[in-house]
Each structure stands twice: as C-alpha cells, then as structure tokens.
C-alpha cells in the first residue's frame, strides 16, 4: 500500500511536517496527496480506535451472519445497501462460505440489538435466515492491541 496511507492508518493525527520528514518529501506534497485521497474517496473518514472496556457505559457489539436471496439484478448490492442504512449497523461485509452478509451492530444493550434483528432485519424481504453472536471482549482492533503498558525490557544502552 501507499506509504503515506500506511502512516495515516497508524496515526491519522500525525502532522504533515512529520509525515514529510519520514517520507523524505515536503509538507506541501503530503498535504496535497491527502487532499487527493480525500477527494477521490480513498480516505473515507478519520476515526479514533476506542477501547470500550475503559468506558463506564460501553456499547454491546453483536455480530450477525445473514443469508439472503440475491436479486436477479444487482445481486447482493441492493439488500446490503438497505441494511447499511440503519444507524445501528456499524459494518457490513459480503462473505464467501456458509452465509452471505456479516454485520456488526452496536447497541446500548443486548435487548436493543436483539430488537434490531427481530423487528427490522429478519422481516426484510430477501433475508432468509440470521445467526446472532454477542461479542464478549476485544483484544485487538484495526491493528491496535487494546491493552497498553508493555515495558521496554531492553538494556538502556548497548553497543
């Protein structure tokens, strides 16, 4: 992948000046590249990776496997798009294998997520079955390990 994108994926808040130093280019050039990525939709958004466990009221994540009947025109796209528009739906992926769509739902309570499945998802035309899993704990997300404070065990000075 593009080096600049790699760096931004690690830390989107890094200053253009520092990025430029790392890449051996100018800050102007970095800014311009970022603008182009944003315009062309390569960069869709910048978000913080949050360790929900550290929060008092953390969200419940539900993972749902969905089987659907593809439509003769547009295949899975139309139904995937309809599902994506629900605000409680965090991510939607088309999968190969035993089911078709994989959804990640965020809700305040298990009940809230459950009502999404029963009241909205399962009655949607084209949805033939669902399997619901609750996520228990996050160890690593978007390449970031959740626990912090690994000490550097190396000697402070070595040849």
């Amino acid at each position: 992948m593009n080096e600049l994108l790699n760096l931004l994926k690690q830390n989107a808040l890094e200053s253009p000046e520092n990025l430029a130093k790392m890449l051996g280019t100018s800050a102007e050039d970095v800014k311009q590249q970022i603008t182009e990525f944003e315009k062309s939709g390569v960069i869709r958004a910048y978000q913080a990776v949050v360790n929900e466990e550290k929060l008092d009221s953390s969200l419940v994540t539900t993972v749902i496997e969905v089987k659907v009947t593809p439509e003769s025109e547009g295949g899975f796209d139309r139904i995937a798009d309809r599902i994506s528009r629900f605000p409680e739906v965090d991510s939607v992926f088309l999968m190969s294998g035993g089911f078709d769509l994989l959804l990640f739902i965020k809700g305040r309570t298990m009940h809230e997520s459950f009502s999404f499945v029963s009241d909205k998802l399962s009655i949607m035309p084209g949805v033939t079955s669902t399997a619901t899993h609750f996520m228990m704990k996050t160890y690593k997300q978007n390449g970031i390990v959740m626990h912090t404070g690994d000490d550097d065990e190396r000697l402070k000075v070595s040849p």
Partner: peptide
C-alpha cells in the same frame, strides 16, 4: 534512550 544497539 537513543543508545540502544538492538531492534525495538
């Protein structure tokens, strides 16, 4: 420390 002669 920038004095360490081994990978981090």
């Amino acid at each position: 420390s920038l004095g360490i002669g081994e990978p981090d």
